[in-house]
């Protein structure tokens, strides 16, 4: 491989520019684009359980889509989005102070330790971590008995397992690391002088944070949201292990259409609508993110002043 790549380099790409990407393009066509195209096709078919591929493509219809919009299914949709949006929000709120602390308030050595501590739990089996939440949350568990003993909760113990609450807790837990890391990277890149200049100009710490730090951390927040919100929406494991009937999420519902229920058209339609919903939520989210710093900038002319001051210092950003 080495040699072929090298000779391509030498020839200054006389072939098509995407030559090196051809394996990837083929791979993605065969194993990504084509299968998903079929899912789109199946979503317009009708269920026919007598066949090996249990879909009748003879008569295409949008029946499955209207079935998804049936009240009960639609509610699971809404519940999934609600859990994911809330969990993403909680991840930002919980993770931002940690990332901020690691980026600005500690020595280099401690940065490494904090980051390692954040990342390490993510490398234990996702499933066993999720299952492990059953231990502290069990109504007959040690924690529950202790809380009852202290008289802080009712005699029934912790009533969280098999509810959306358990899913909410575990999902925040499972994805928190994926939020903290990009937040840290973005914050860490911020030129300290920007913040100092802002303070020198008399802006309070709140104004500095809102006007300088937060807008500059924008890309990190965006990356973090992408890394957490999307997998959350399709999460199949957390809800299956902890959610019970009430914490059902759309991911588990889609999977069951393909394994147990054998209703491929319905499952396909659900999956497509889920992606549409995810993308819609992202667009809405980004519009908000796009507007917010501009509003903040309007509200805080300090930023403009700071930017100008830095430019006038003529010190090129070196980080």
């Amino acid at each position: 491989m080495t040699f072929s790549v090298a000779s391509v380099l030498r020839r200054r790409w006389r072939g098509p520019k995407y030559l090196l990407a051809i394996p990837a393009i083929i791979w993605y066509l065969v194993f990504f684009a084509a299968p998903i195209a079929f899912i789109v096709l199946y979503s317009f078919g009708t269920k026919d359980s007598s066949r090996l591929v249990p879909v009748d493509l003879g008569s295409l219809s949008t029946k499955s889509y209207s079935a998804v919009f049936d009240e009960t299914f639609f509610k699971t949709f809404r519940a999934t989005l609600r859990i994911s949006v809330l969990a993403t929000f909680l991840c930002v709120v919980i993770g931002l102070p940690v990332a901020y602390f690691a980026a600005f308030k500690v020595a280099e050595k401690w940065k490494a330790i904090i980051l390692a501590a954040v990342v390490v739990p993510s490398f234990t089996s996702f499933l066993i971590r999720t299952v492990a939440w059953r231990i502290p949350l069990a109504p007959n568990g040690t924690l529950s008995k202790w809380l009852v003993g202290m008289g802080w909760i009712s005699d029934n113990g912790i009533q969280i397992l098999e509810t959306p609450m358990a899913v909410q807790i575990a999902i925040v837990y499972n994805y928190l690391g994926f939020m903290i890391l990009p937040l840290f990277v973005a914050l860490d890149r911020i030129d300290v002088r920007m913040r100092e200049a802002s303070k020198d100009l008399g802006a309070g710490r709140v104004a500095t944070f809102m006007g300088v730090t937060l807008p500059l951390a924008g890309p990190g927040i965006v990356a973090g949201v992408l890394l957490t919100f999307i997998p959350m929406c399709g999460d199949y494991v957390t809800a299956t292990v902890l959610g019970g009937a009430k914490g059902n999420m759309i991911g588990a519902m889609i999977a069951s259409q393909f394994s147990g229920a054998q209703n491929w058209p319905l499952g396909s339609a659900m999956a497509i609508l889920m992606i549409a919903a995810v993308l819609l939520a992202l667009v809405v989210g980004f519009v908000v993110v796009w507007i917010a710093p501009r509003l903040a900038a309007l509200a805080s002319p300090v930023v403009q002043v700071v930017r100008r001051k830095i430019l006038s210092d003529q010190s090129p950003a070196s980080k």
Binding site: K17, A21, I36, I230, A271
Partner: peptide, 28 residues
């Protein structure tokens, strides 16, 4: 010119929830 299309594909792969890939491949 191809970069845009390719990056769009990569981005799509990253944002597609896993369950979608899963069912697509299982039926594929």
């Amino acid at each position: 010119g191809w970069t845009k299309f390719f990056m769009a594909t990569v981005f799509l792969i990253l944002v597609t929830p896993e369950i979608m890939d899963a069912i697509a491949l299982a039926t594929w």
